[in-house]
Every structure is written in structure tokens, then in C-alpha cells.
Nucleic acid binder design. Structure first.
Lengths: 233, 233
DNA sequence: ACGCCCTTGTGAAAGTACGCACAAAGTAGG
DNA sequence: CCTACTTTGTGCGTACTTTCACAAGGGCGT
């Protein structure tokens, strides 16, 4: 029995699957723009750079949206994935730290093909406060609590130097932010109810260096062929 | 028996471990600077935000560098991890695309606490070519092959618009680059001998949105406590 | 209507990763 | 030297992930 939740839906999409849905979504949106109506798991998997069985299993977690013998309806699948990812509603984002990186993020057009609205930019440096970046006036970090509260920000992006990151994070969390995207090279501590994702340039480089060294050591002759980058993430 | 490779070492470090080593390394370097001589797996794990058993198992893949009853020698461990990650030698990096992001990357000081040297910046836009960014003169993308060859670049960073990414990647690869760090929102195709890692802002945001929606739906009361962010990567 | 062919959805197997719990090994104090 | 205490290194059970392989389902031509 174990009556678990109000909804009958299982609601147990594996994390690994969630991480791939955005990739599928992007591929599908590209196809939709080019006027493609349906796509097979084989073709979509090739574009997304994954195994087709994995793709089918991933999609099966959302429901049975394919048609045997035909494939998947592109538009319908775009809608279903968007809905599952929560992109049918808008999320409000605030960015703390308007250095080179913060600027790059603010100007990142579309910001994930809609679904995300940048509500505010914060910085602690008085020389930057008041500047206009990406159509927004940079505010002082001390106004963070006010703005996050009034704008109902749910996602905080941390693009500050490492030393300030935890402090800014704490303020975000206290102000009500429940998801944090961290670009600073530090491990953040947050309450369990808050999600943190980390993007760290130097970690990525170091992982590449590891494999690079491997290749240099006992240079195993690479098997021939040219495969889709199964970008190890 | 199975005499496999020249070196007796097993040389089979799990990918998940490799991805965490840089985190440990950073924590250890911080401790070293602060003068800490030894550290227990418990303490280091807390700082790195992981389970201590996992930390010990990770480190055990490099060898037995701890002392029971005492812990790990900080300096020694820094050295061992650095060596394993291939940071005892310098890797040469080239960045393609000098927009906001490329600039941010070029100026990212230390570039992973040494070990990486930026040899060149490339851009296709004539208005940017010739500018000085982070102490380097931006070169035209058409000189990519020459520079990559003469400077012996092994890691290529792609910070171009999505449409140019695959083309630039192909040129990098043809010129001899064997690792690629891709910031463009596309899946790159490369030969099997080339490693690709992807950093994708909108994917990260979409994953956060998914969890955000979860929380909003059936708002499961979060259990109390304040834990270290086990930053899901 | 029928049967062929194509593609999905999924059971089961294989491969990874995680974390507990404890024996082994070392330190320190008497 | 012996005992008490600390911390590593790892065996083992569990959970998650990936991949294979194929039965079931659905369209399309005749």
C-alpha cells in the first residue's frame, strides 16, 4: 500500500536524467525552429550525444509521449520537457558580483531561452554601483534583502570573489532564495532546503589536465572513429 | 598474472574521484597557507563538503598517504594530488572568443592556482583583434593553427557563440589540441582521443528550476539542520 | 483487413558509486 | 612494554546508472 503522496504520479525522476533533459530540450527547440515535426530516439540521441536507449528511458520517466514506429512529436516533447523542468513559469534571478563574469552572465542573452528573468545585479564596489549593465542599474549589495524580498527572487547567482561568496550566500538564503548557482571557487554551506549548484572553471581544467596527463603517459593508441562527444559531466 | 602495463600502478582512478580531487586540493592549499601541518579525513571532508569515508576512499586510490591515529600531512597530500592531476607540469591553454565570457576567463587570475598558462586569445571580430586583454594581444581566429602549433597548446577553451563553436573546435582538434573546455551551448563532436568538458549556464539554471518547482509543488517540509552543500554535480 | 516494418518502452544484466562499520595500525601515556 | 585512544584503509551491502536486447504497439502499403 504505502500511500505516499497526493498525486498518483511517481515523481521520482533520477537526477542523472534531469541533468540531461535540458540538452534534449535545446536540441528539440532547434529542430522545431527548423520545422521538423517528429524525431526518432535514434536521431535525437545522436544530436544530444547520448545512447538512444538512455534517451528513451529518460523520456519514459515523463510519460509515454512517443509513438511506436514513428518517434516523438517535436513540439509536444518540447512542451512536456519544459513543463517538467518548470520552464512554463518564470523564475526570478539575482546576480551578486558584477565583475567580468557577472557582466558576462548578465549579458547572456535569452538566459536559457526564456524562463528566467534577471531582477537585479548587486555589487559591493561603489565604483560599479549605479552603472548600467545589460539594461539594469547595479545596486549596492546592502540592498540585497530588500530587493530579493520585493522582487520575489528564487534563484541567486554568486559571481563574487571567493572570500565574499559564503557571506553573500547566507544573505541570499536569509532573504528567501532557495536555489543558488555558485561560480566562486568555494564550497558553500546552506540549509538542506536550499539547492546549490557549482560551476568551477579551475576544477574543469584540472580534470582535463588529469586526462591529458594520462594520454601523455602511456599513450594508448586511440581506437579509430569519430564519435559524438559524450561530454563527461 | 595479466601483465598489463609497464608501471605496476593500477592507474584506475574512478572518474567521480577525479572530479573531487580538485576540491580537496583547494581545501588543502588553503590549510597549507594557514600553516596547518596535518589534517584528519573527518576535518578535510567537512571542509570539502563530503562524507569522510568517501574522502578516505578517494585518497586511497592515490596510495596510502595517511598515518593512522594522526591523519594526512597537508603538504605531502597537496603534492600527491597535484601530481596525480598533472599539475606539476604546465599546460598551455588558448581561448577562442573574446566576448564578455572570454574576457572574464582570460582575467581569471591564477587560472586554477597555477599549472595553466594562457598562450593566446582568438576572435573572429576585427574590432576586437589587436586589443590587449589580460596582457595578451587578441589574435585573429585565422592564425589559430599557427599559434596552437608553435605554442604547443594542449587545451582549447571555446567561449564563442554557439554557431561558431563546432567549427572552432574542429580547428583546435586539427591543430593538435587534445582537450576542449566548451562554454558554448552546443554538443561538440570530436574524435575519441579528444576530451571535452562542458560548462553550460542555462543547463545549470534549468536543473535548479526543476528542483525549485518540486519544492513549490508538494512543499515537503525540509528536515531541520544546516548541512554542508553536497553540491550536486 | 492484413501483414510487414519501424520504433518505442522496459526487463534484466552489468557497471559505478556511496556510505556504514570495523579491523588494522599507529600514537601517547603510564 | 603494555594499554587506551585515535584515525586510516577497506570489505560489504545498497542504491543508482548505463546498456543490451526484445516484446509490444502502431502506421502504412496492398
Amino acid at each position: 500500500m504505502t500511500p505516499r503522496s497526493p498525486r498518483p504520479k511517481d515523481r521520482g525522476i533520477p537526477e542523472a536524467t534531469v541533468a540531461r533533459l535540458p540538452v534534449y530540450l535545446r536540441a528539440l527547440q532547434g529542430m522545431a525552429e527548423r520545422g521538423t515535426l517528429t524525431v526518432s530516439s535514434e536521431d535525437l540521441a545522436a544530436i544530444a550525444g547520448v545512447n538512444s536507449a538512455k534517451l528513451r528511458k529518460d523520456l519514459s520517466h515523463l510519460g509515454s509521449y512517443g509513438t511506436r514506429g514513428v518517434g516523438y512529436d517535436v513540439d509536444y516533447l518540447v512542451y512536456q520537457i519544459s513543463r517538467e523542468l518548470g520552464l512554463t513559469q518564470d523564475w526570478t534571478v539575482a546576480i551578486a558580483g558584477v565583475g567580468n563574469l557577472g557582466r558576462a552572465l548578465a549579458n547572456y542573452g535569452g538566459f536559457g531561452t526564456r524562463g528566467f528573468r534577471i531582477a537585479a545585479l548587486f555589487d559591493a564596489d561603489g565604483r560599479v554601483v549605479g552603472d548600467e549593465v545589460a539594461g539594469l542599474v547595479v545596486r549596492h549589495i546592502d540592498t540585497l534583502e530588500d530587493v530579493v524580498g520585493s522582487e520575489d527572487v528564487s534563484i541567486g547567482v554568486i559571481a563574487t570573489p571567493a572570500v565574499s561568496a559564503q557571506g553573500v550566500c547566507d544573505r541570499f538564503v536569509k532573504a528567501g532564495v532557495t536555489s543558488v548557482l555558485n561560480f566562486a571557487p568555494v564550497v558553500l554551506s546552506v540549509p538542506p532546503a536550499v539547492d546549490v549548484r557549482k560551476v568551477d572553471l579551475s576544477i574543469e581544467l584540472q580534470i582535463l589536465a588529469f586526462h591529458e596527463q594520462r594520454k601523455a603517459d602511456g599513450q594508448a593508441p586511440p581506437e579509430a572513429g569519430w564519435i559524438d562527444a559524450t561530454e563527461k559531466t
